[in-house]
Simulated scan of single mutants.
Amino acid sequence: MSGVLDEIGLVHREVGTLRAGEEEAGTVLLRRSFDAALAEVWDAVTTPERITRWFLPVTGEFRVGGKYQLEGNAGGEILECVAPERLRVSWLFGPDPGFSEVEVRLAPDGEGRTVFELEHLAVVPEEFRSQYGPGAVGIGWDLALLGLGWHLEGGGLDQDPAEWQSSPEAKAFVARSGEEWGRAFAASGADPETVTATTVATIAFYTGE
């Protein structure tokens, strides 16, 4: 289990806000280095067949202006694609999703290594934000980066992903991730009581406990 939990410490996390037109968007940012060349990481995050192997099955028109859909998850439009540096998409889920965008940025990090940065901007209803905080989306992205790291190393889960998600290992990972997002939320200036309440609620939501 320690190997999976060690992955948590490889990620830098930030929480903030930005203006999105007339509204305020919450932001979560994740940054980590992968022991893989820039071209390899870019291929892993932009090739549909490879995205299916570490994240979710995806369909669509894979060009700027094209639509995409992740199975059972978000869909949207490919807004910008500057190979091998930047990919920006709208990230829409549910019948009335509002503004939500994800941008992935890559940069070389010495010989054969790549800095991966993901920023998710979204206008979130106040009742949801006050109940769960940024960890609601942050934990999901931590899980995605865990899968990407395994994929780039040439490995992966040795069991069905659905089974793993209910395992003690997965629940420990989620709990640690939620705690780290609580720290990032506190560092953004959030009220301590709000940080504690949202962290507990989000971890409970993901673990079912």
Rank of each mutant, 00 (worst) to 15 (best):
S2V: 12
E7I: 07
G9S: 10
G9F: 14
L10Q: 14
L10G: 08
R13N: 03
V15T: 07
G16P: 08
G16C: 10
L18I: 11
A20L: 09
E24C: 04
A25F: 14
R32I: 00
A37E: 15
V45C: 05
T47V: 11
W54R: 03
F62S: 01
F62Q: 02
F62H: 05
Q69W: 14
L70M: 14
G72C: 08
N73V: 03
N73E: 14
E77R: 11
I78C: 05
C81D: 04
V82Q: 09
P84K: 00
E85D: 06
E85L: 01
R86M: 08
S90E: 06
S90V: 07
W91M: 02
F93C: 06
G94W: 15
P95E: 07
S100L: 11
E101R: 05
R105H: 09
L106E: 00
P108T: 00
P108N: 01
P108S: 00
R113F: 05
R113L: 02
E119C: 13
L121M: 13
A122W: 14
V123S: 08
V124G: 06
P125H: 13
E126Y: 15
F128C: 03
R129V: 08
Q131H: 15
Y132P: 03
P134R: 07
A136K: 05
V137N: 12
W141E: 02
L145N: 01
G147E: 04
G149Y: 13
G155P: 06
D158W: 12
W164C: 01
W164E: 01
S166Q: 14
S167G: 04
S167H: 09
P168F: 13
A170T: 03
A172Q: 07
R176C: 06
R176V: 09
A184I: 02
A184N: 00
A186W: 10
A187I: 03
A187E: 12
S188L: 08
D191N: 04
E193N: 05
T194P: 02
T194D: 07
V195F: 06
T199A: 02
T202A: 01
Y206M: 00
Y206F: 15
G208F: 12
G208V: 05
E209I: 05
